[in-house]
């Protein structure tokens, strides 16, 4: 493919994405918005899982931190839109830094168990500290800021466009990070932590930074989640949702963030279409996940990348065209 066709495809893609709220039905737009902010969680997960090989169950905890910070600040009239988001992201970074210190020394299953516990801590605080977080009744009535209510003709498109821009920026940034020397160092840690230590890299600091980046991405998802739904409830950040992020990302394939996005799209589409039929769609999703874990550990993208052309694209995106390891 030459440069010309490539540019044409990219432009077409962007135009389609921009036009979605104008031409597609409300249902489809809502679905795409949901897929996008949940995909941000999946990206946060896949960044750690793909680069460092660490499976984190604390991803929704950061969504909770940013969502609850915004909810509490705005419903009590302490801070309003641009500043509340800044405060929320700052809070995410602080909590991410503290959690990062806890989990820094662990690897493999130990990391998974620790993040499970950390996620449960956040959930417990949110559920039990009722005088501050409203507990199990949740915070309701968080309004979208005016800029997100911006209209184009009849339809409200502000939220969609802001989310889209953030989403694309984060995807590009994560792709750039995985190609950068930072990303390569993380991959080195994944392969052998002791060797990287011996080579003189500050392993602890690199892992900590990666954890913070993942926390930041998940925090962004929280901002969009809370503005879109207007509700912050403990049940949206419990262990089930952590498991959902994990399942979706691994289902799609964590060695590429495209896989994580694909996985989240499939799982969310499944969830929305199956939840009309039955409340117990988790059985089906769980079984699918079980099959993927046993028979295709690299996820759907792992299957797709077996194709030669797709493999070359993967090399191009993740290694900047360099084929050798």
């Amino acid at each position: 493919m030459n440069q010309m066709t490539k540019n044409l495809i990219y432009t077409l893609g962007v135009i389609v994405l921009l036009a979605i709220p104008l031409i597609a039905s409300d249902f489809l737009t809502t679905m795409i918005i949901r897929i996008m902010y949940y995909s941000l969680l999946a990206i946060g997960f896949a960044f750690l899982a793909g680069q460092l090989g660490l499976i984190s169950l604390a991803i929704p905890a950061f969504m909770a931190v940013s969502g609850y910070t915004i909810g509490i600040l705005e419903t009590r009239g302490l801070l309003s839109f641009p500043f509340s988001v800044l405060a929320a992201m700052l809070m995410v970074l602080v909590i991410g830094a503290v959690f990062g210190i806890f989990v820094n020394r662990s690897q493999g299953i130990y990391f998974l168990m620790l993040t499970l516990i950390l996620g449960q801590i956040v959930w417990a605080i949110v559920l039990q500290w009722a005088s501050f977080t409203k507990g199990s009744s949740g915070i309701i009535g968080i309004e979208k800021p005016d800029i997100m209510k911006w209209r184009l003709g009849e339809t409200e498109v502000g939220f969609y466009y802001i989310l889209l821009v953030c989403f694309i920026l984060i995807v590009l940034a994560v792709l750039a990070l995985t190609r950068s020397s930072f990303g390569l160092k993380l991959k080195g840690i994944r392969e052998s932590e002791t060797r990287m230590k011996m080579l003189g890299y500050p392993v602890a600091r690199l892992k900590w930074t990666a954890f913070m980046i993942s926390a930041f991405i998940s925090g962004t998802a929280g901002v969009f989640f809370v503005y879109y739904t207007g509700v912050m409830h403990p049940s949206s950040i419990n262990l089930d949702s952590a498991a959902m992020v994990l399942i979706a990302s691994i289902f799609g394939g964590v060695q590429s963030i495209i896989g994580a996005i694909l996985g989240m799209s499939i799982i969310k589409t499944f969830e929305i279409s199956l939840s009309g039929l039955t409340q117990r769609y988790l059985i089906i999703i769980g079984t699918m996940f079980l099959l993927v874990i046993i028979y295709a550990p690299k996820g759907l993208m792992g299957l797709i990348y077996k194709n030669k052309y797709m493999q070359s694209l993967y090399q191009h995106w993740y290694r900047g065209g360099k084929k050798d390891e």
Binding site: I55, G108, I109, L112, I247, I285, G286, T287, L290, P297
Partner: peptide
């Protein structure tokens, strides 16, 4: 999946999800 601890753990996670949902049914 014996031998890969992380995959084994993920298998138990999916069993947990399936069993939990079946129990609700």
């Amino acid at each position: 999946v014996r031998g890969d601890n992380l995959r084994e753990t993920l298998v138990t996670l999916s069993v947990a999800i399936i069993v939990a949902d079946l129990m609700i049914v």
